Simulated assay, not measured.
Amino acid sequence: MSGMRSTRPMLSAARAMTSTISGQTRRNMASMPRKEHRPLPTIAPRRAPMLIGAGIVGVSLWIGGLSYAMNFQRQSSSVVHGTMFTVRYHQGVRDLLGENVGYADSWAWIDGSVNHLKGQVNIKFDIKGDNGHKAKVHFASRREGANWRTIIFNVTRDDGVTLNLDQQSLTDTGAPVMALSS
Rank of each mutant, 00 (worst) to 15 (best):
S181V: 06
A140E: 15
V177H: 03
I152T: 04
M70R: 13
S6F: 02
L97S: 00
A108K: 01
R157P: 13
G119S: 00
L51D: 01
R88K: 05
V80G: 03
W62I: 12
G112R: 05
G102R: 00
G174V: 09
G160D: 01
P45F: 08
D159A: 05
M178Y: 09
S67P: 01
E144P: 02
S22W: 07
A104L: 04
G112P: 03
T173A: 10
I127F: 08
L11G: 03
A44I: 00
G82M: 02
W62C: 14
A69R: 05
L96S: 06
F85M: 11
M32C: 09
A135L: 02
F85N: 13
I56N: 04
M10Q: 15
D95M: 02
N28Y: 12
G23P: 01
I151H: 13
L40Q: 04
T173R: 11
N122P: 03
Y68Q: 14
S182I: 05
N154R: 01
T162L: 09
Y89S: 14
D105L: 11
S22A: 10
M32R: 15
S141V: 13
N131V: 07
I21W: 13
L66D: 13
G145P: 12
D111N: 06
V79W: 11
V59L: 15
M50I: 10
N115W: 08
S169L: 09
M50Y: 07
N71C: 01
A13Y: 15
T173C: 03
A54S: 11
I63V: 12
N131C: 00
W109P: 01
I123Y: 08
K35F: 07
V59Q: 04
G129N: 02
M178Q: 10
D172K: 15
V80W: 03
L180A: 15
H116F: 10
V93I: 13
A54K: 06
S76V: 10
R27W: 05
Q24G: 14
G160C: 13
Y89V: 09
G82N: 00
K128R: 14
G119K: 12
V79P: 04
A175Q: 14
F139H: 10
K124I: 08
L61P: 09
S141W: 03
Q168V: 11
H116V: 07
D166T: 11
I127N: 03
H138D: 11
R143P: 05
R88A: 11
G65E: 03
R74P: 10
G58L: 08
R149L: 01
D105S: 11
V79Y: 09
P33F: 07
A13C: 07
A179E: 14
L163A: 10
M4G: 04
P49R: 06
S60T: 15
M29E: 00
G3I: 09
V57G: 00
S60P: 06
D159M: 06
R5K: 10
